[in-house]
Design a protein around this nucleic acid. Structure first.
Lengths: 171, 171
DNA sequence: CTTGACTCTGTACTCGTCTACAGAGTTTAT
DNA sequence: ATAAACTCTGTAGACGAGTACAGAGTCAAG
């Protein structure tokens, strides 16, 4: 694999060296769309990859681990922003683990709080539904089902019903 | 309260009749921002209110119930779109309760699924954290904490960590 | 009559995570 | 040599639930 350093971007002559991949292949193997890969790069989640002379991105096989890392972290509830901070630390040679640990701890607390809310919320819903089955509809209202519920509705800081925004992954 | 019908919008001369409110007052009492009120109106959640001769919106006191209804429904996890459908039904004289009941049932199922996911997720996080405390960091990786976790990360259809997008309510 | 608070419309922007497209250049297979 | 498939950059759009602002008009108090 002959390479030549040129300022910042490594330019790779032979991309069939050892498992070198172009973006489409990376996309197929990782299950992450090409556009998303470029988006990750732009937002600093991925290092700028080497390029062929003609400008094509060329990735080493380790990109797949990195992407798996990202997906895993996402699945664990990290935002891309948090993941970026972690990756930045790693790039600077600092162990990001302290930061990760902090984030995870915070996430755990949030999670517990969220689950408490969800449980309350579920109880409300179920009770309301049941109650409605007994009572029937109250006239003069939009719907007794909702009006008769006793859910707290002043704060809304936790917004329970979110993320139903219907975003299907490709595939 | 003298009113005169003029096409569609009722024009109200005397807005100090019985508890008639202008938008700022409604905003203050309901805790919903003025812009949001206009946004609700535009999206069909609120009836077009009467206007003064000079074009100011004038609401009767029942608006507060309607807004409480909306907030309650939101707190129950209904999207504005769903709420609009419900309110539409009510406006057409149909009982929206069947629809509401359907939505609530569906929401309950989703909720159970989500809570299952959250529980799995919490378990992962907690175990991972603990494991990391024992093991220390693995060299050559970004962070063993995440890399050693076994969370499913192929599907992502449920996206567990969502809605932390930091949108504080005014107040 | 002026000042300040309120309201109007309409448009643009926010947040996060992408997706889609246009128009051009490159590589690969036939 | 040519066509298909791939890649590039850059910009725009999607989603949900609003917020922010500009520029104009209106209302109440001093």
């Amino acid at each position: 694999m002959r390479t030549s350093e040129l300022g910042k971007a490594r330019i790779v002559d032979d991309e069939r060296g050892r498992g070198m991949l172009r973006i489409g292949e990376v996309s197929k193997r990782s299950g992450i769309g090409i556009e998303a890969l470029r988006f990750y790069e732009k937002s600093g989640l991925l290092d700028k990859p080497s390029r062929t002379y003609s400008g094509y991105r060329v990735y080493g096989p380790e990109i797949l681990d990195r992407l798996a890392f990202i997906k895993r972290a996402q699945a664990l509830g990290f935002s891309l922003d948090e993941i970026r901070r972690i990756v930045d630390d790693a790039r600077r040679g600092e162990s990001p683990c302290d930061e990760v640990r902090e984030i995870v701890s915070r996430r755990l607390e949030e999670l517990d709080e969220r689950m408490r809310e969800l449980r309350r919320y579920r109880k409300e819903l179920a009770e309301t539904l049941e109650e409605w089955n007994k009572v029937g509809r109250a006239p003069g209202h939009i719907c007794g089902l909702i009006e008769s519920s006793h859910v707290e509705h002043g704060e809304k800081k936790g917004k329970l019903g979110g993320q139903r925004s219907g975003k299907k992954k490709r595939g």
